[in-house]
Design a protein around this nucleic acid. Structure first.
Lengths: 256, 256
DNA sequence: TTATCATTGTGTCATTATGACACAATGATA
DNA sequence: TATCATTGTGTCATAATGACACAATGATAA
């Protein structure tokens, strides 16, 4: 199907399969080369970027919508996703934006459910950067990772959504185990610390960090060390999946 | 306007003023006689109870919808409300419930936006029990307080919404100052402790409790004592509004 | 009038958690 | 074989926490 046809169908028939007035936007975090990254889409025929988003199918649990969006953009499945906030400014209207988009593409549509007001539910996911197949959706020209420290212009309130998600992540660092999805299966203690330092955007004491992380019991020291690195070979660790999942549920009481 | 007319208007024209597929439900907590209470509505011509809820006007911020609902049920204004979760089970359908309700009332309506699926956004409020003028809405026969320990049958997933709100409140007790809206302006330390014990549903050590509460600096000791009580007259305290609001924003790091 | 008693207010102490810090071990590289 | 950046681990003073005891108060009852 060509873009024009796709757009006509989406704008004129979308309300037959999706709920109205609600959308889902996903803040997908990854970690690569000691940088915290977020996955964004670039609208076709426009420079501006957006969070991967979508709508809720009429018979679908909202968590499934978020997972579907994640799956379609990354190829990843079975990732824990978490709703964190509903954005409901009345003027976060997509009408002007959508009409501009249609104009850019050269399609004229008069009436559409897409011109109504949308609330958006923000979801976060933490994913393994190396396993992601970044895939644009049908209305996007590109799907790329950005360092959270240097973000491009973003549509609507997507910048605010992203920053709320980041704040959430920083707070959760103290109560939830983080890293299972962001790191490879085996990782080093300095590697884990870099992740924490990157998210918190501040330095942590190496020795106290190790003491506290080990006190949570969610990671296990392996016999192996990481080979082929300069300097002393660091010991490898992995998450203890059982404790990890437990800690995800009940939290950890933990202060960095 | 009679009930039938009201219902016809709401079911046939409501979608002209409200967003579709989204509702707001409010868990309004109060504290009275050492019990944690929640405000519920009883559907007309049915025994079953429900959380005070409503819909989002087309040009209204969702927070305003929640405040409007609170104001209409309690007469209270300027109360801090907080969205805590979106409930999105596809089968939390209101269709059967609404049709049953119409049948009870004796009104027949074939098609309605009210028969579609609704997501519901849960909000909490903490209010001063003594200042509440409990007022049923037009579709309710009664508006009453219930002890959270002995709740009646509730429609749809309202029981789950309520319990999620309660869990939220228990967790927040450790990070946010609680009590300003739930207690009278002047209160005693044992009174505040009772509130905490009631919400957490466990006993706390009197001396350690006082030490920790005072360490937060959000409450101020007054010169006065509470008169006319048996036994030793307890000292009165009040919230320091400035510190309180600050603590609401940035949290408190606090463990009971 | 005075003793009783439930309740309030405050202090101590041992234990644990925390932050600041130093030194030895390692292993690639020069 | 020496160098050196990095890793791994231990210590210490201080702060926070939980468990606990005793004195003060003031209404009530003898």
């Amino acid at each position: 199907m060509g873009l024009e046809q796709l757009l006509r169908k989406h704008f004129s028939k979308g309300h037959e399969i999706y709920l109205r007035n609600i959308s889902v936007d996903c803040v997908i975090f990854g970690f690569h080369e000691n940088e915290l990254k977020v996955l964004l889409l670039q609208a076709k025929y426009a420079g501006i970027w957006a969070l991967p988003g979508g709508f809720i199918l009429k018979e679908e649990h909202m968590d499934e919508s978020a997972k579907r969006i994640l799956r379609n953009r990354t190829g990843l499945d079975d990732i824990y996703m978490h709703q964190f906030h509903v954005f409901s400014q009345p003027d976060r209207s997509t009408k002007a934006v959508n009409q501009q988009f249609l104009k850019n593409v050269g399609v004229e549509i008069k009436e559409s459910w897409m011109f109504e007001r949308f609330l958006s539910v923000g979801y976060t996911a933490l994913v393994d950067f190396t396993r992601v197949q970044a895939t644009p959706d049908e209305f996007a020209a590109a799907c790329e990772w950005f360092n959270v420290q240097s973000l491009p212009d973003m549509i609507l309130d997507h910048r605010e959504i992203l920053e709320t998600a980041l704040r959430e992540l920083q707070i959760n660092l103290n109560y939830k185990p983080i890293g299972y999805n962001l790191l490879p299966e085996k990782f080093t203690m300095p590697g884990l610390q870099k992740l924490y330092e990157t998210i918190l955007n501040r330095k942590l004491d190496r020795r106290n960090f190790q003491r506290k992380i080990m006190a949570t019991k969610v990671i296990i020291k392996l016999a192996d060390t990481k080979k082929g690195v300069a300097h002393k070979a660091p010991v490898l660790y992995k998450f203890d999946l059982k404790s990890y999942k437990n800690a995800l549920k009940i939290g950890m009481g933990f202060e960095l």
